[in-house]
């Protein structure tokens, strides 16, 4: 089976005045469908750049990036916008909900940009909100919701267009430990329903929720291994394969 994400020797060069800086120095990486991956690294390691490229918010200076079989590295702005709309669901550290509109309208946004009709949008947005346990908060504006609820709205928004990939950037960074744990349980749940999840974090504890951990340092992949959870799951899958 073809991997969902195929990254080959991706480099990202920033030119600041006379200085040239490689944020990524040649990263190669495959991520399969229904993987649950954490990308870790200290600030300045290039993990944000990698996330932006995976999220199609940015394009590599060189190298190749295929998402779902589509070559993303040579796409124009509008094509990238369409990929972001259809293939990727973003979850941000600061939630990034639009403050003036209610939860339902926020979840509706990606559907507007994919040209869905009003009735269908409402139906999909409502079921996405029900999925994250916010059926009684649909008409609340973001400032009437708690941090955890806001992040759930954001997750509902990420899910609503049924993307190939959920990309979460420090999803618990602005939440207290308990709420953060709840959000991580939600991610685990999403994974078990077949979603592919990439979490970018610098917290080891959060990363341990994922099944595979990729560590970035100085623009290169420093480490790529299975977490404790990942090992257990791999073990289980193996046994199942054997017993079959």
């Amino acid at each position: 089976m073809e991997p969902l994400i195929e990254i080959k020797d991706v480099k990202k060069l920033y030119v600041m005045g006379l200085e040239e800086l490689y944020a990524l120095k040649g990263v190669s990486l495959d991520i399969n469908n229904n993987e649950y991956v954490a990308i870790m690294g200290p600030s300045g390691s290039g993990k944000s750049t990698l996330m932006n490229i995976i999220g199609c918010l940015d394009t590599p200076s060189s190298g190749e990036y295929k998402l779902n079989g589509k070559n993303v590295n040579e796409m124009e702005d509008d094509e990238l916008a369409e990929i972001r709309n259809k293939e990727i669901g973003f979850v941000f550290q600061t939630f990034n909900l639009l403050p003036r509109i209610n939860a339902l309208s926020n979840v509706e946004l990606p559907l507007i940009y994919s040209g869905k009709k009003k009735d269908e949008r409402i139906e999909l947005a409502e079921s996405a909100l029900i999925n994250v346990g916010l059926e009684d908060r649909m008409n609340h504006k973001p400032n009437e919701l708690s941090g955890g609820q806001r992040q759930r709205v954001a997750i509902a928004r990420a899910l609503v267009n049924n993307p190939s990939l959920i990309l979460a950037d420090e999803p618990t960074g602005n939440l207290d430990t308990k709420t953060g744990e709840e959000i991580m349980i939600l991610f685990e749940d999403l994974w078990s329903k077949g979603n592919t999840i990439i979490i970018v974090t610098h917290e080891e504890e959060i990363a341990q929720n994922a099944h595979r951990i990729i560590k970035i340092r100085d623009g290169l992949i420093a480490d790529d291994y299975l977490s404790e959870k990942g090992k257990l799951i791999a073990e289980k899958t193996k046994q199942q394969t054997i017993s079959v």
Binding site: G55, L57, D77, D78, A81, E82, R84, N85, K86, F90, N96, L97, L98, L109, P110, Y113, S114, R157, N161
Partner: peptide, 13 residues
């Protein structure tokens, strides 16, 4: 920021 969010969610230029 709103423009950024909208673009991330798939708004074209």
């Amino acid at each position: 920021k709103e423009v950024g969010i909208r673009k991330a969610l798939g708004a074209r230029r």
